[in-house]
Design a protein around this nucleic acid. Structure first.
Lengths: 232, 232
DNA sequence: TTCAGCCATTTTGCATGCAATTTTTGTTGG
DNA sequence: CCAACAAAAATTGCATGCAAAATGGCTGAA
């Protein structure tokens, strides 16, 4: 999940990467929720970096559509609408069809081992009710993308995974925390067998289940909830 | 091709959009070729804007992978490698399969009319040997993306179209300037008939032909060619 | 003549500071 | 007591200026 590192040519700075990763992790772990305002000077003070760097990082996040800038109001964690949510998942689903197809053709036994390791970690985290299940599950999809051996696709899928986390952060039904790791396991088997037809079908079903776990009928506004917790 | 306009919320500025569009047009029209260095102060003087704005625009182009920054050397039009070229086209082809599929389902008669108009303009420009054929042809693909009515997909396809122009700018075989407008016409017919199966196949063949028109066997370095014309 | 090493120039990277705008708070009048 | 208005505080947007780094030219020695 760290396609950020190792970019010396661009005007990137290790300090910025730290802040970038912290913020992104906070978003993926759903600690920072959509609608949240990100104060530049406070972030700058907290991490002891000049404000210009904070701003640079926020702009980087904006370019990934993870935060939104409002004129003279600053940066906010972006709050996808229902339409955006559907569109993002539609595109991601399609992208990952290509991903598994390529992964089936190119996966080595070592790749499969890495996937199986991820499965075990996800299962373990799920059973122990650890909060980082989501991150491990997201990593699974990113690992397949790496196996596809198309760097542009890999990077693209990475950004879509993060955007989808944001969507889930807003629209996920709290009730049914369904276990999706078994679907991951089945997909690994299909990839290992190089059965791309089966793998693509599994991926489609997998996304059907994920989207089904979302409440995409009405808009939700999270930032209000912060104050509305009294009125409900 | 202008998904830039109308974004007041982001910290964007009309003056920046002008420069952005100028640069992007220059790239799409293959006036600015890959490897070209972009001097910040000269651009700033030419368009009479502070350097900070030029820089902002260049960073925006960098985020679309159209320019590359090298540390303390500045911005260059990015020069895709053979591997990148293949990967970009692979992803774009797959994305546009989804695009036509959706377009078939959602195209109105007005949409079809817009496409046919584009076809006529492309054909006309082709026969008149006008240099803007490429831009019109690129616009065709963008128009279909708009018809698909998925804004995220639309925007994404837009960036991939531009990256592919860059690839063609480097790797296109000079010899056979083949006429692709007929394939566009056939695709319009398929979309009008709402025959998504046929439309997808057409799109695939279309991309086969485009990729076939590229010389993707060896790396090409354009900026060297400027000087290598003596040695060949 | 040629090449290595050094200095000057050019160009970018980035921190600082000011101006513009929003948000909040305090006050006054109804 | 509440609403409307005004002033102040906070926060962002952005231009300017300086420091760091790379390129190109120049001198001197082999």
């Amino acid at each position: 999940m760290d396609e950020v590192a190792g970019e010396k040519l661009r005007g990137k700075h290790p300090v910025e990467d730290v802040l970038y990763n912290r913020l992104m992790d906070a978003i993926v772990d759903k600690y920072l929720r959509p609608g949240q305002h990100l104060n530049e000077v406070k972030l700058a003070e907290k991490y002891d970096v000049p404000r210009s760097r904070v701003r640079r990082v926020l702009e980087r996040l904006r370019d990934e559509d993870v935060v939104v800038f409002e004129l003279h109001r600053g940066a906010f964690i972006s709050r996808p609408t229902v339409a955006e949510a559907k569109n993002v998942f539609q595109v991601r689903r399609h992208l990952e069809e290509l991903v598994v197809s390529l992964a089936c053709a190119r996966a080595t036994s070592k790749d499969i081992a890495i996937l199986r390791d991820n499965y075990l970690r996800e299962r373990e985290a799920f059973e122990a009710l650890r909060p980082n299940v989501n991150r491990i599950a997201a990593e699974f999809h990113f690992l397949i993308a790496k196996i596809a051996r198309n760097e542009i696709l890999e990077q693209l899928v990475g950004t879509f995974i993060r955007r989808c986390v944001l969507v889930q952060s807003v629209y996920e039904k709290k009730s049914g925390i369904l276990c999706l790791s078994e679907e991951h396991r089945e997909m690994i088997d299909a990839i290992a067998a190089k059965d791309s037809g089966a793998a693509i079908r599994m991926m489609q079903h997998h996304f059907d289940h994920i989207v089904a776990s979302l409440e995409l009928t009405k808009e939700r506004r999270l930032e209000k909830d912060v104050y509305d917790f009294l009125t409900e």
